[in-house]
Design a protein around this nucleic acid. Structure first.
Lengths: 134, 134
DNA sequence: CCAATCCTAAGACAACTGTCTCAGAAGGTC
DNA sequence: GACCTTCTGAGACAGTTGTCTTAGGATTGG
C-alpha cells in the first residue's frame, strides 16, 4: 500500500492540536478545550472532524465507558515536517535555506533565540569538512 | 474596506508562479510553461485558474490582440509572507524562531548558506546590545 | 466567403471542507 | 418504567478546489 499523505485541513488541524496537547480526548473534552481557545463549534462539528481524522488514519479511538476516546497516531513533529516541506517545495524552490533567510529578515528574532540559532549553526558546521564537490 | 486575504489553492499557485517567472502570460503561454514543468492541464483548466485568480484580485488582465494577457498584482514575496505567517501561527505558536530552529535541525544548510545566515544574525543583533553572557 | 483555428464565456461535476440537524441507542434518576 | 442526558450514526448542504466539455465569437488563409 502506497504512502498517501492525507491532507489535513485547518479545522481538522485545530482538533488534532487539542489531542496533542491533552494526549487524548473525547468529543466533549475536545469541544470544551476548543471553546476555551475561542473556537466555538457544535458538538456535531467536532465529532465530524474527529471522524474524518480517524478515516484518514490520523487518530484512533476506542470506547471508554459510554464515549469514544480519541488519540492521535501522528505526531505534531510529523505534521510540521510535512507542512514545512510542502511550503519549501512550493515557494522556496525546495531550498530550506531560503526560507530560513526569509524568516530572519522579515521576523527579527530576539537575542535569546538568535544565540540559539548560532549554536545550532556552529554545531552544524563543526564536524563538517564542508568539502562539496561531485 | 476590509482586508480580505483570499486563499490561494495549490493549483492557482502553480499558475501564479508562472506569471511571476514570466512577468505576464496569456492562457496559452501559461499552459505551455506549465506543460514544460510537468503540469499537463487542459487549456480550459488554465483559463479557469487564471479567471479565479482574477476574481480574487490577484492578477489582472487586458486584451492584447485577440487574447487576454494576465499579469500578477500580488508579489511572490507577499504570498510567501502570508504562507509563512499562517504556518507559524498554526504550528509554531506564532514564534518564527521555533520554525527557524526546526528548519536548521531537520534540514542542514550547506556552508555557504550557513554563513549567510550568520551574517543576517549579526546584522540583526548589531544595533542591539544583545548581552547574553558571553 | 468558408473552413480551420484559437479564444472567451458559461457551466458541469466530483471531491473536499466547514458546519450543522436529527433520529435513536445507552445509561442514569426517582 | 418513564424521563432526561449524552452519545453515536447518518447525512444534509453550501462553498471551495481540481479539471474538463461545449457553444459560439473572432482571426486567418485561401
Amino acid at each position: 500500500m502506497a504512502k498517501r499523505p492525507p491532507t489535513i485541513p485547518d479545522s481538522e488541524l485545530d482538533v488534532l492540536k487539542v489531542l496533542w496537547e491533552r494526549g487524548q480526548a473525547t468529543v466533549r473534552e475536545a469541544l470544551e478545550t476548543l471553546k476555551a481557545a475561542g473556537r466555538e463549534w457544535s458538538y456535531a462539528t467536532v465529532a465530524t472532524l474527529l471522524d474524518r481524522l480517524e478515516t484518514k488514519g490520523l487518530v484512533e479511538s476506542d470506547r471508554k465507558e459510554l464515549a469514544f476516546v480519541y488519540r492521535p497516531t501522528i505526531s505534531s513533529q510529523e505534521v510540521r515536517q510535512r507542512r514545512v516541506s510542502s511550503l519549501v517545495d512550493k515557494l522556496y524552490e525546495g531550498e530550506p535555506g531560503l526560507l530560513v533567510l526569509h524568516l530572519l529578515k522579515s521576523h527579527p528574532l530576539d537575542p535569546g533565540q538568535a544565540s540559539q540559532v548560532r549554536e545550532v549553526l556552529d554545531q552544524m558546521t563543526a564536524g563538517k569538512p564542508a568539502k562539496k564537490k561531485g
